[in-house]
């Protein structure tokens, strides 16, 4: 059951990512990305990371993707034929990409991973909250400051332009 679920989500993710990458329309890409995020969220669920999956859906789909679409809308005429993204250097890029993929596959398959599989599904939210407030307190605070800085900086840059 879990295996079928994995292949389904994997297929959804890769297919929609493929649409996103190879589509010539920015809107199509955005839609492809939306489904990719959902697929990845499904994968997280299969990996027993319920909080991360929810955060993925909320932040990526509800935040980042909307942000990206705003960018598209603000910078391009929605109704025009210009809503296209052109590509360049596709052939060398494909060669490099395939090369990298080959390297990754080779590394992954050759490595002897110290696998210690957990089989239980437990809620992770409380644990994550404890970890963030204990072991990862400083990164947590830094990230909040980073978010504040990004907020102000983004607003400043956008307004100035």
């Amino acid at each position: 059951m879990q295996d079928i679920m994995f292949y389904m989500f994997a297929a959804l993710t890769i297919a929609s990512a493929g649409v996103m990458v190879f589509s010539r329309s920015v809107i199509y890409s955005a839609v492809g990305l939306l489904f990719t995020f959902f697929g990845v969220a499904g994968i997280y669920v299969l990996l027993a990371a319920d909080f991360v999956a929810v955060a993925q859906v909320m932040i990526y789909v509800g935040g980042i993707l909307v942000l990206l679409l705003f960018g598209v809308m603000l910078s391009q005429r929605v109704t025009g034929v210009n809503m296209r993204t052109e590509t360049l250097q596709t052939v060398p890029a494909a060669i490099v990409a395939v090369g990298v993929l080959f390297i990754l596959f080779r590394v992954i398959s050759k490595t002897e991973w110290l696998v210690k599989a957990k089989t239980t599904f437990e809620p992770t939210t409380a644990k994550l909250g404890t970890l963030l407030m204990t072991d990862y307190l400083i990164p947590f605070e830094i990230v909040s400051v980073l978010l504040l800085g990004a907020l102000i900086g983004a607003a400043f840059i956008a307004r100035k332009g």
Binding site: Q89, P92, G99, V100, I103
Partner: peptide, 20 residues
């Protein structure tokens, strides 16, 4: 920038190939 990225990756690939 994209050309730079590609070149860097190309170098990585080459490195890996030579090492292997």
């Amino acid at each position: 920038i994209q050309a730079y990225i590609m070149m860097a990756l190309f170098a990585v690939v080459l490195l890996f190939v030579f090492q292997q």
